[in-house]
């Protein structure tokens, strides 16, 4: 049984079909990459499987159970958490408190939540910033808080929406290292990223989304040599590669 499985998931906005009959599957322990040009529907797809949007059609199962119509908080309780492309730290809370909100998902007690939060904060390398307020952080800091909040909920599956966008190359390297540690801790991940090297190196398997449709699926080396993918990216590839880093 797959950890998460989506079948024929479709979502329309007025006349636009943002996600069109997508089949998607994640196995326990994998890192799955999700790529596609700007506007391909990646974020919308995350919104659908994390419960922020309801699909018009299709079926989504997590851990063997249908999660259609469930609230995001409920889906998070079951073990699937997402981060936001437009990061959302709680601006008036310290980093520790931000992460504690996530940690309360499995720890009712304040001391336990705090302990969990500090553990996660160390893991993502935010230790020195723990006492800063959410609004005082740099872009890189915010991205890490976003990751830490999600991790603190102790997910089985984490959906990461462009956690590297807007980072400098050295910050990207730091983030890759963090994700390595997260994987070692046994968390399954779906990663949306525009930086191709990153996604190719990290992913076990990659899905390609184009105009809302999943046009390819396979191991990284298969994907690079896939004609459909090259075509989807041709003409748009420079936009995606060069502009993607700053896209938000």
């Amino acid at each position: 049984m797959s950890l998460m499985e989506a079948k024929g998931v479709t979502r329309r906005f007025g006349g636009l079909t943002a996600v069109n009959a997508v089949d998607f599957r994640v196995e326990q322990g994998e890192i799955v990459g999700l790529i596609g040009p700007n506007g391909a529907g990646k974020t919308t797809f995350f919104n659908l499987i994390s419960g922020f949007l309801r699909p018009d059609e299709g079926e989504i199962r997590f851990d063997g159970q249908s999660i259609i119509g469930h609230k995001p908080s409920d889906i998070c309780k079951r073990g699937m958490t997402r981060t936001f492309q437009i990061v959302k730290p709680f601006p008036e809370m310290t980093v520790t408190d931000n992460v504690m909100v996530g940690a309360f998902n499995h720890h009712r007690d304040r001391a336990a939540a705090r302990a969990k939060a500090s553990e996660v904060i160390e893991l993502v390398g935010l230790g020195p910033q723990a006492a800063k307020l959410g609004r005082e952080l740099t872009v890189a800091g915010r991205k890490r808080v976003e990751l830490a909040k999600a991790l603190a909920t102790e997910p089985k599956l984490m959906l990461l929406d462009e956690v590297m966008a807007g980072l400098t190359p050295s910050e990207v390297a730091g983030m890759i290292e963090v994700l390595g540690r997260v994987r070692a801790a046994g968390v399954t991940m779906v990663i949306v990223e525009h930086v191709m090297q990153v996604i190719m190196n990290l992913s076990d398997r990659i899905y390609v989304l184009h105009h809302g449709e999943a046009i390819a699926e396979g191991a990284p080396d298969q994907i690079v040599s896939d004609a459909k993918v090259t075509k989807a990216y041709l003409g748009e590839s420079f936009v995606a590669e060069a502009g993607g880093g700053a896209a938000s």
């Binding site: 959302k88 939540a113 909040k149």
Partner: peptide, 27 residues
Amino acid sequence: ARSRFGYYLHAIRQDEDAAEAVGVPTK
């Protein structure tokens, strides 16, 4: 203010979607 409930309420006030995403039953 020191309880989970208090943290949840503060989170809701600052960003409801972000709270919901990390397991806060906002409603």
